[in-house]
Protein backbone atom coordinates (compact mmCIF):
# COMPACT_ATOMS: atom_id res chain seq x y z
CA UNK A 1 0.00 0.00 0.00
CA UNK A 2 1.22 3.46 -0.80
CA UNK A 3 -0.51 6.78 -1.35
CA UNK A 4 -0.07 8.37 -4.76
CA UNK A 5 0.75 11.69 -3.12
CA UNK A 6 3.70 10.02 -1.37
CA UNK A 7 4.98 8.83 -4.72
CA UNK A 8 4.42 12.34 -6.07
CA UNK A 9 6.56 13.96 -3.37
CA UNK A 10 9.36 11.39 -3.69
CA UNK A 11 9.42 11.51 -7.47
CA UNK A 12 9.56 15.30 -7.50
CA UNK A 13 12.84 15.06 -5.60
CA UNK A 14 14.15 12.42 -8.01
CA UNK A 15 13.18 14.55 -11.01
CA UNK A 16 14.61 17.65 -9.38
CA UNK A 17 18.05 15.98 -9.55
CA UNK A 18 17.59 15.06 -13.19
CA UNK A 19 16.05 18.29 -14.51
CA UNK A 20 17.70 21.46 -13.20
CA UNK A 21 14.95 23.59 -14.75
CA UNK A 22 12.21 21.79 -12.84
CA UNK A 23 10.41 24.02 -10.32
CA UNK A 24 7.60 23.36 -7.87
CA UNK A 25 4.86 25.93 -7.29
CA UNK A 26 2.61 25.40 -4.29
CA UNK A 27 -0.77 26.77 -3.25
CA UNK A 28 -0.24 26.58 0.54
CA UNK A 29 -0.75 22.82 0.60
CA UNK A 30 2.74 21.32 0.26
CA UNK A 31 2.46 19.41 3.53
CA UNK A 32 -0.73 17.76 2.23
CA UNK A 33 0.41 17.10 -1.34
CA UNK A 34 3.90 16.04 -0.14
CA UNK A 35 5.56 18.63 -2.35
CA UNK A 36 7.23 19.70 0.92
CA UNK A 37 9.78 16.96 0.21
CA UNK A 38 10.90 18.95 -2.79
CA UNK A 39 11.17 22.14 -0.75
CA UNK A 40 13.43 20.33 1.72
CA UNK A 41 15.67 19.11 -1.10
CA UNK A 42 15.65 22.20 -3.35
CA UNK A 43 14.54 25.20 -1.31
CA UNK A 44 15.43 27.68 -4.06
CA UNK A 45 13.41 25.90 -6.70
CA UNK A 46 10.28 25.74 -4.55
CA UNK A 47 8.01 28.74 -5.00
CA UNK A 48 5.20 29.29 -2.52
CA UNK A 49 2.29 31.05 -4.22
CA UNK A 50 0.00 31.21 -1.20
CA UNK A 51 -3.75 30.64 -1.31
CA UNK A 52 -4.22 32.08 -4.78
CA UNK A 53 -4.58 29.33 -7.35
CA UNK A 54 -5.58 31.41 -10.36
CA UNK A 55 -2.40 33.42 -10.00
CA UNK A 56 -0.38 30.23 -9.63
CA UNK A 57 -1.57 28.97 -13.03
CA UNK A 58 -0.62 32.26 -14.66
CA UNK A 59 2.81 32.30 -13.05
CA UNK A 60 3.36 28.72 -14.21
CA UNK A 61 2.56 29.69 -17.80
CA UNK A 62 5.10 32.53 -17.72
CA UNK A 63 7.80 30.31 -16.23
CA UNK A 64 7.09 27.54 -18.72
CA UNK A 65 7.48 29.89 -21.67
CA UNK A 66 10.93 30.77 -20.32
CA UNK A 67 11.92 27.12 -20.47
CA UNK A 68 11.30 26.10 -16.88
CA UNK A 69 9.30 22.97 -16.09
CA UNK A 70 6.80 24.01 -13.39
CA UNK A 71 5.11 21.25 -11.41
CA UNK A 72 2.12 22.52 -9.47
CA UNK A 73 0.93 21.42 -6.05
CA UNK A 74 -2.64 21.92 -4.85
CA UNK A 75 -5.87 20.00 -4.46
CA UNK A 76 -7.59 18.82 -7.63
CA UNK A 77 -10.67 20.96 -7.15
CA UNK A 78 -8.68 24.19 -6.94
CA UNK A 79 -7.09 23.49 -10.33
CA UNK A 80 -10.12 22.32 -12.26
CA UNK A 81 -12.60 24.74 -10.71
CA UNK A 82 -10.99 27.68 -8.96
CA UNK A 83 -8.24 28.21 -11.50
CA UNK A 84 -10.04 26.86 -14.55
CA UNK A 85 -9.92 29.97 -16.72
CA UNK A 86 -6.18 30.67 -16.41
CA UNK A 87 -5.59 26.93 -16.70
CA UNK A 88 -7.50 26.98 -19.98
CA UNK A 89 -6.33 30.22 -21.54
CA UNK A 90 -2.83 30.71 -20.19
CA UNK A 91 -1.74 27.09 -19.90
CA UNK A 92 -3.71 24.85 -22.28
CA UNK A 93 -4.33 27.36 -25.08
CA UNK A 94 -0.65 28.37 -25.13
CA UNK A 95 0.48 24.73 -24.86
CA UNK A 96 2.58 25.74 -21.88
CA UNK A 97 4.84 23.04 -20.46
CA UNK A 98 3.08 22.96 -17.09
CA UNK A 99 2.55 19.79 -15.06
CA UNK A 100 -0.46 19.78 -12.79
CA UNK A 101 -0.11 17.61 -9.70
CA UNK A 102 -3.76 17.32 -8.77
CA UNK A 103 -3.57 15.83 -5.29
CA UNK A 104 -6.74 14.73 -3.47
CA UNK A 105 -8.78 13.56 -6.45
CA UNK A 106 -11.99 11.61 -6.39
CA UNK A 107 -14.10 10.85 -3.34
CA UNK A 108 -11.49 9.89 -0.77
CA UNK A 109 -10.25 13.32 0.23
CA UNK A 110 -9.98 12.90 3.99
CA UNK A 111 -13.45 13.82 5.28
CA UNK A 112 -13.49 17.18 3.53
CA UNK A 113 -16.88 16.76 1.91
CA UNK A 114 -18.44 17.94 -1.28
CA UNK A 115 -16.53 21.21 -1.54
CA UNK A 116 -13.28 19.31 -1.99
CA UNK A 117 -14.55 16.11 -3.65
CA UNK A 118 -14.18 16.86 -7.32
CA UNK A 119 -16.51 14.55 -9.23
CA UNK A 120 -16.29 16.55 -12.46
CA UNK A 121 -12.58 16.93 -13.13
CA UNK A 122 -12.25 14.23 -15.79
CA UNK A 123 -15.18 15.62 -17.77
CA UNK A 124 -13.61 19.08 -17.71
CA UNK A 125 -10.06 18.06 -18.41
CA UNK A 126 -10.93 15.50 -21.09
CA UNK A 127 -12.86 18.13 -23.00
CA UNK A 128 -9.93 20.54 -22.93
CA UNK A 129 -7.86 20.53 -26.13
CA UNK A 130 -4.07 20.35 -25.68
CA UNK A 131 -4.37 18.64 -22.30
CA UNK A 132 -2.92 15.24 -21.45
CA UNK A 133 -5.06 13.54 -18.79
CA UNK A 134 -3.48 10.83 -16.64
CA UNK A 135 -4.87 8.87 -13.69
CA UNK A 136 -2.28 6.42 -12.32
CA UNK A 137 -3.36 3.17 -10.74
CA UNK A 138 -0.66 3.11 -8.07
CA UNK A 139 2.59 4.58 -6.76
CA UNK A 140 4.64 2.82 -9.46
CA UNK A 141 2.59 4.25 -12.29
CA UNK A 142 2.61 7.69 -10.67
CA UNK A 143 6.38 7.71 -10.78
CA UNK A 144 6.49 6.37 -14.33
CA UNK A 145 4.00 8.95 -15.57
CA UNK A 146 5.93 11.77 -13.92
CA UNK A 147 9.14 10.69 -15.63
CA UNK A 148 7.31 10.58 -18.95
CA UNK A 149 5.70 13.99 -18.33
CA UNK A 150 9.09 15.65 -17.92
CA UNK A 151 10.15 14.44 -21.36
CA UNK A 152 6.86 15.49 -22.96
CA UNK A 153 6.48 19.15 -24.02
CA UNK A 154 3.05 20.45 -23.03
CA UNK A 155 0.48 20.57 -20.29
CA UNK A 156 -0.17 17.39 -18.32
CA UNK A 157 -2.89 16.79 -15.76
CA UNK A 158 -1.98 14.11 -13.22
CA UNK A 159 -4.84 12.82 -11.10
CA UNK A 160 -3.41 11.85 -7.71
CA UNK A 161 -5.13 10.54 -4.59
CA UNK A 162 -4.70 11.07 -0.87
CA UNK A 163 -4.85 7.73 0.91
CA UNK A 164 -2.77 4.56 0.60
CA UNK A 165 -3.85 2.11 -2.09
CA UNK A 166 -2.41 -1.21 -3.31
CA UNK A 167 0.73 -1.30 -5.45
CA UNK A 168 -0.03 -3.61 -8.38
CA UNK A 169 2.51 -2.80 -11.09
CA UNK A 170 6.08 -4.13 -11.21
CA UNK A 171 8.82 -1.69 -10.29
CA UNK A 172 10.22 -1.92 -13.85
CA UNK A 173 6.93 -0.72 -15.38
CA UNK A 174 7.32 1.87 -18.15
CA UNK A 175 4.46 4.18 -19.01
CA UNK A 176 3.34 4.51 -22.62
CA UNK A 177 0.78 7.22 -23.33
CA UNK A 178 -2.55 5.91 -24.59
CA UNK A 179 -1.95 2.29 -23.68
CA UNK A 180 -4.73 0.24 -22.14
CA UNK A 181 -3.45 -2.19 -19.51
CA UNK A 182 -5.01 -5.63 -19.27
CA UNK A 183 -4.70 -6.53 -15.60
CA UNK A 184 -6.69 -9.76 -15.83
CA UNK A 185 -8.14 -11.91 -18.61
CA UNK A 186 -11.80 -12.80 -18.60
CA UNK A 187 -14.75 -13.93 -20.71
CA UNK A 188 -18.14 -12.82 -19.41
CA UNK A 189 -17.64 -9.18 -18.63
CA UNK A 190 -14.96 -6.50 -19.00
CA UNK A 191 -14.39 -4.23 -16.02
CA UNK A 192 -12.73 -0.96 -16.93
CA UNK A 193 -11.26 1.39 -14.36
CA UNK A 194 -9.00 4.38 -13.94
CA UNK A 195 -6.83 5.54 -11.03
CA UNK A 196 -6.73 3.32 -7.91
CA UNK A 197 -10.34 2.32 -8.62
CA UNK A 198 -8.82 -0.22 -11.03
CA UNK A 199 -7.37 -2.07 -8.03
CA UNK A 200 -10.84 -2.43 -6.56
CA UNK A 201 -11.97 -3.93 -9.87
CA UNK A 202 -9.25 -6.57 -9.58
CA UNK A 203 -10.57 -7.45 -6.16
CA UNK A 204 -14.13 -7.62 -7.46
CA UNK A 205 -13.02 -9.86 -10.32
CA UNK A 206 -11.52 -12.33 -7.86
CA UNK A 207 -14.79 -12.50 -5.94
CA UNK A 208 -16.75 -12.97 -9.16
CA UNK A 209 -14.44 -15.79 -10.27
CA UNK A 210 -15.38 -17.75 -7.17
CA UNK A 211 -18.96 -17.66 -8.44
CA UNK A 212 -18.06 -18.72 -11.96
CA UNK A 213 -18.15 -15.26 -13.56
CA UNK A 214 -14.92 -14.56 -15.45
CA UNK A 215 -14.29 -10.83 -15.50
CA UNK A 216 -11.51 -9.19 -17.50
CA UNK A 217 -10.00 -6.11 -15.85
CA UNK A 218 -8.62 -3.17 -17.80
CA UNK A 219 -6.95 -0.02 -16.57
CA UNK A 220 -7.06 3.25 -18.49
CA UNK A 221 -4.40 5.36 -16.82
CA UNK A 222 -4.07 7.49 -19.93
CA UNK A 223 -7.51 8.96 -20.58
CA UNK A 224 -6.02 11.33 -23.10
CA UNK A 225 -4.31 10.43 -25.33
CA UNK A 226 -5.99 7.03 -25.70
CA UNK A 227 -5.18 4.20 -28.06
CA UNK A 228 -8.78 3.76 -29.21
CA UNK A 229 -8.02 0.84 -31.51
CA UNK A 230 -6.25 -0.93 -28.69
CA UNK A 231 -9.23 -0.40 -26.42
CA UNK A 232 -11.67 -1.68 -29.06
CA UNK A 233 -9.57 -4.75 -29.70
CA UNK A 234 -9.30 -5.58 -26.02
CA UNK A 235 -13.01 -5.14 -25.38
CA UNK A 236 -14.17 -6.89 -28.58
CA UNK A 237 -14.58 -10.41 -27.09
CA UNK A 238 -16.71 -9.20 -24.19
CA UNK A 239 -20.52 -9.11 -24.37
CA UNK A 240 -20.76 -6.62 -21.52
CA UNK A 241 -18.59 -3.73 -20.32
CA UNK A 242 -18.73 -2.15 -16.85
CA UNK A 243 -16.83 1.04 -16.08
CA UNK A 244 -16.19 2.29 -12.54
CA UNK A 245 -14.69 5.57 -11.41
CA UNK A 246 -14.54 7.99 -8.50
CA UNK A 247 -16.18 10.55 -10.73
CA UNK A 248 -19.56 11.49 -12.12
CA UNK A 249 -21.06 8.95 -14.52
CA UNK A 250 -21.18 11.85 -16.97
CA UNK A 251 -18.18 12.70 -19.08
CA UNK A 252 -15.44 10.75 -17.33
CA UNK A 253 -14.15 7.24 -17.92
CA UNK A 254 -17.64 5.81 -18.54
CA UNK A 255 -18.30 8.55 -21.06
CA UNK A 256 -15.02 7.91 -22.80
CA UNK A 257 -15.50 4.14 -23.11
CA UNK A 258 -19.08 4.62 -24.32
CA UNK A 259 -18.00 7.16 -26.92
CA UNK A 260 -15.36 4.85 -28.34
CA UNK A 261 -17.55 1.74 -28.35
CA UNK A 262 -20.67 3.40 -29.72
CA UNK A 263 -18.84 4.50 -32.86
CA UNK A 264 -17.17 1.20 -33.70
CA UNK A 265 -18.49 -1.72 -31.68
CA UNK A 266 -21.78 -0.84 -29.94
CA UNK A 267 -22.58 -2.98 -26.93
CA UNK A 268 -23.97 -2.67 -23.43
CA UNK A 269 -21.91 -0.42 -21.18
CA UNK A 270 -22.82 -0.01 -17.52
CA UNK A 271 -21.29 3.09 -15.92
CA UNK A 272 -20.68 2.98 -12.18
CA UNK A 273 -19.80 6.26 -10.50
CA UNK A 274 -21.38 9.24 -8.84
CA UNK A 275 -24.91 9.59 -10.17
CA UNK A 276 -25.42 13.29 -10.70
CA UNK A 277 -24.97 14.33 -7.10
CA UNK A 278 -22.29 15.75 -4.83
CA UNK A 279 -20.08 13.89 -2.40
CA UNK A 280 -20.08 14.27 1.37
CA UNK A 281 -17.70 13.91 4.30
CA UNK A 282 -17.55 10.39 5.69
CA UNK A 283 -15.05 7.56 6.21
CA UNK A 284 -13.59 6.05 3.02
CA UNK A 285 -15.27 2.65 3.36
CA UNK A 286 -18.60 4.28 3.91
CA UNK A 287 -18.20 6.42 0.80
CA UNK A 288 -17.06 3.56 -1.44
CA UNK A 289 -20.00 1.51 -0.29
CA UNK A 290 -22.47 4.38 -0.64
CA UNK A 291 -21.45 5.13 -4.20
CA UNK A 292 -21.18 1.49 -5.27
CA UNK A 293 -17.41 1.60 -5.77
CA UNK A 294 -16.17 -0.91 -3.19
CA UNK A 295 -15.14 -4.33 -4.48
CA UNK A 296 -18.18 -6.08 -2.96
CA UNK A 297 -20.58 -3.50 -4.39
CA UNK A 298 -18.97 -3.74 -7.82
CA UNK A 299 -19.19 -7.54 -7.73
CA UNK A 300 -22.83 -7.34 -6.67
CA UNK A 301 -23.69 -4.98 -9.52
CA UNK A 302 -21.80 -7.02 -12.12
CA UNK A 303 -23.52 -10.20 -10.97
CA UNK A 304 -26.88 -8.54 -11.41
CA UNK A 305 -26.04 -7.22 -14.86
CA UNK A 306 -24.56 -10.51 -16.08
CA UNK A 307 -27.61 -12.41 -14.93
CA UNK A 308 -30.12 -10.00 -16.48
Amino acid sequence: MKALREAFGETLVELGEKYPRLLVLDGDLANSTKADRFEAAFPDRFLEMGIAEQNMLGVAAGLAHLGFIPWLSSFTVFFTHRALDPLRMLVAQTHANVKIGAAYSGLLTGYTGKTHQDVEDLAIMRAMPDMVVLAPIDAVETRAMMHWACEYQGPVYLRLTRDPSPVVLEAAYRFEPGRVLELRQGRDVALVGTGPQSTRLLEAAKALAREGIEAGVFHLGSLKPLDEDGLLEKLRPYPLVVTAEEHSIYGGLGGLVSEVLSAADPKRVIRIGIEDRWGESAPNDWLLDRYGLSAPRIAERVRKEVES
Binding site: I51, T112, G113, T115, S281, A282, R290
Partner: peptide, 26 residues
Amino acid sequence: DKGNSRLQGHPDMTRLPGLDISSGSL
Protein backbone atom coordinates in the same frame (compact mmCIF):
# COMPACT_ATOMS: atom_id res chain seq x y z
CA ASP B 1 -17.81 14.07 9.50
CA LYS B 2 -19.74 10.80 9.75
CA GLY B 3 -21.91 9.59 6.87
CA ASN B 4 -25.29 11.34 6.49
CA SER B 5 -24.39 14.01 9.04
CA ARG B 6 -25.70 17.57 8.96
CA LEU B 7 -22.28 18.53 10.29
CA GLN B 8 -20.13 18.18 7.21
CA GLY B 9 -16.37 18.74 7.19
CA HIS B 10 -17.10 22.14 5.70
CA PRO B 11 -20.36 24.03 6.36
CA ASP B 12 -23.19 22.91 4.07
CA MET B 13 -26.23 25.18 4.18
CA THR B 14 -28.35 22.61 2.33
CA ARG B 15 -28.03 20.29 5.32
CA LEU B 16 -27.88 22.43 8.43
CA PRO B 17 -30.44 25.15 9.19
CA GLY B 18 -28.80 28.26 10.60
CA LEU B 19 -25.99 28.38 8.06
CA ASP B 20 -26.31 31.35 5.74
CA ILE B 21 -23.87 30.02 3.15
CA SER B 22 -21.78 26.96 2.33
CA SER B 23 -18.00 27.34 2.35
CA GLY B 24 -14.79 25.34 2.15
CA SER B 25 -13.12 26.74 -0.92
CA LEU B 26 -11.42 29.77 0.57
